[in-house]
Every structure is written in C-alpha cells, then in structure tokens.
C-alpha cells in the first residue's frame, strides 16, 4: 500500500474514530463519546446523501426528511412500548426495518416526482417535500407536535447488545457507518454506479447510448433515503429526544455543507466533512454565540479556493508529496 498523506490521514481518522470511547473513558470525559457519536450519525447521513449528490449530481435539499422518519419511528415506537406496554414496538430491529421500508417508500414517491425536474426546480421540490413532512410532524399533537417526544428508553435489541450504554451505542453507530461506506464503495464502482456517475457527467449522452436514466436515478434516490433513515434511528437513540427540527430544511442544508466541506463525490469526504463541521460548531460556539458568522466565511473560502473540499486539499498534498519523494529518489 502506498502511504500517501491522504491515505494516512483517512486511516488515522477512521482508527481515531474507532478509539474514541476508549480514549474518552481513559481521560474520564465521557462527553466526547456522545459528541463523536453525533458525528458518526451525521456522517452516515452525509455518506448516503453523497451517493446521489456527489456521485449522481442530484442536489436533494430535503435529505433530512429520512433522519426525521428514522427518528420518529423510534420515538413513536418507544412511546407505545412504554405507555401501552406493546413490547415489540420498542424493538430496535423493528425500528430499523420499519424505517428502511418507510424511507424507501417516501424516497420512491419524492424521487418519482422530483426527478422529472432538473436544477433549481429539483432543489425546490425536494425542499418542499421535506417541509411538508416537517409540518406534518409539527402539527401532530399526538406525538409531541412542535415540542417533540422524549424517549424513556432506547431501542431494545433482544438483549444481543444494550445501547443504553453510550459506548455500545457508539460502536453500533461506528459499525453502521463502516457498513454504509462499504456499501457506497461497492455501489459506486458497480455497473449501477458507473451509470449514475455517467448521468451526472452527461445526461444527454447517457440517453443517446441507450440508458433509461430516470429509473436508475430513482433507485439511487431510494437507496440513499433508506441509509439515511437508519441514521435517523441512531440519532433518536443518541439524543433520546425527537422533535420536528431533526428534519428542518436547515438540517438538510447542514448535510450538504458537510459534503461540500469534506469533498463532493469522494468516499470519505462526507465523513471528514461531518467531523470537521461538528468540530467547528463545537469550537466556534465556544468562542461566540454567533458562530455561524465565522463559519460562513470559512465555507465560502473552501468553496472558492478548495473546490474538492478538505479531501481535495489532501489530494493536492499527495501531489506535492509524490513530487517531493521522486526528487529525493533522484
């Protein structure tokens, strides 16, 4: 394996993420486990959005809707499990299964309508759909309405593992992140992935060489939604609280920002971006309440000067590194 700076950075990042609970326990700061847990969950969301946005060129501005679906499945399920004693509704496997199915259905409907449009119209329609779900949640008094729901238990996994322990939940998040990265990696290099990337690069040509672009895009849209729905299940368990703001449009915007910050259309870019985003949020909000005032200009600079985001900078660094090591050999 060629240890370029980029490979080294990404490897260290992933190993580092894997070791967070150990370190946090070691220095007796369990708060870090919770903070990084959030990073992992939003990483999963960003990885899923990157499939359609980064590789497929579909700028969905409503991706947080699936975070909401996953979260509410847990919220609603655990409420009934505790208040009505319906035990199976507190089951984590059922939460995942129902979220996947429901996210897929919603993704199919939103995709089937919005993917007939392009550009700004696509952005607006996906945004409109997600706001629709947002207001449904706000208006639904039975499940907390605007105030949301507090979870009195986390999802139960038949005693296989117990995520009421923060470290166990952390590793569940970590495993699902690794799985979604691996699935992404397989998909983007498969025939299906080539097709999706081709349609981003040149849709007219895809049609003229004989691809029915729409149905492949729709499939990608549904896959991305289901993965993000799983992130929603994890998110609700993490915060033990569900309210409509989890699918507010600003949350969808955050996911896009994470991808752009980390590196659009790269495998690890969304993870790097999610970690960097939440780090900056944590760090900057310690300095000032108006942390976005500093974050905004930083993002503008990244977009202008580093089109490939942080991952793009690492690629540049690799270039310098290669030339430097060549010179040393000569």
């Amino acid at each position: 394996m060629n240890w370029s700076p980029r490979t080294a950075f990404i490897t260290l990042l992933m190993i580092g993420l894997g070791a967070v609970p150990l370190i946090a326990d070691g220095i007796d700061e369990p708060f870090y486990t919770v903070m990084f847990s959030r990073m992992l969950i939003l990483s999963i969301g960003a990885v899923s959005l990157n499939l359609i946005l980064g590789y497929g060129g579909m700028v969905s501005f409503g991706h947080a809707v699936y975070l909401g679906i996953g979260s509410y499945m847990v919220g609603i399920g655990t409420i009934h499990a505790i208040e009505d004693g319906i035990e199976w509704m507190g089951n984590g496997f059922i939460h995942f299964a129902v979220s996947i199915v429901f996210s897929a259905l919603v993704g199919f409907v939103i995709g089937a309508i919005s993917l007939r449009t392009r550009g700004v119209y696509f952005i607006m329609i996906t945004l409109a759909f997600s706001q629709m779900f947002y207001f449904v949640a706000v208006g639904n008094e039975k499940y907390g309405g605007d105030d949301g729901l507090s979870l009195y238990m986390r999802s139960d996994f038949n005693g296989l593992f117990d995520i009421s322990n923060d470290n166990t939940l952390y590793y569940l998040n970590f495993v699902i992140l690794l799985a979604s990265l691996y699935v992404s990696h397989r998909i983007i290099n498969s025939r299906f992935g080539m097709m999706i990337r081709g349609a981003k690069s040149n849709e007219q040509r895809m049609a003229s060489i004989g691809f029915p672009v729409f149905r492949y895009r729709l499939t990608a849209f549904v896959i991305a939604g289901t993965i993000c729905g799983m992130a929603g299940v994890l998110s609700a368990n993490q915060t033990e609280f569900v309210n409509p703001s989890v699918m507010h449009w600003t949350r969808s915007g955050d996911l896009i920002i994470m991808i752009v910050l980390g590196g659009l259309g790269t495998l690890f870019g969304p993870v790097i971006g999610a970690v960097a985003f939440l780090f900056l949020e944590e760090f900057l909000s310690g300095i000032t309440e108006y942390w976005q005032l500093i974050f905004g200009p930083m993002l503008v600079l990244v977009v202008i000067f580093a089109r490939g985001g942080i991952d793009g900078m690492l690629v540049l660094l690799d270039g310098w590194w290669n030339r430097y090591s060549l010179k040393n050999k000569a």
Partner: peptide, 25 residues
C-alpha cells in the same frame, strides 16, 4: 472519466440492465 470507461459505459448500455450493485464494473 477515462477514455476506456467512456466506451465501456456505452458497451454496458447494451449489455442488459444495469441494476448490478456489487461487482466492480
């Protein structure tokens, strides 16, 4: 994409459907 990928994609368009999610194309 690479020159080869460009043509391979055109070949793929006429090699059955592209709902293959796992194998490296």
């Amino acid at each position: 994409m690479t020159v080869w990928d460009n043509v391979a994609l055109a070949v793929q368009a006429h090699a059955g459907h592209s709902f293959h999610f796992w194998k490296n194309a």
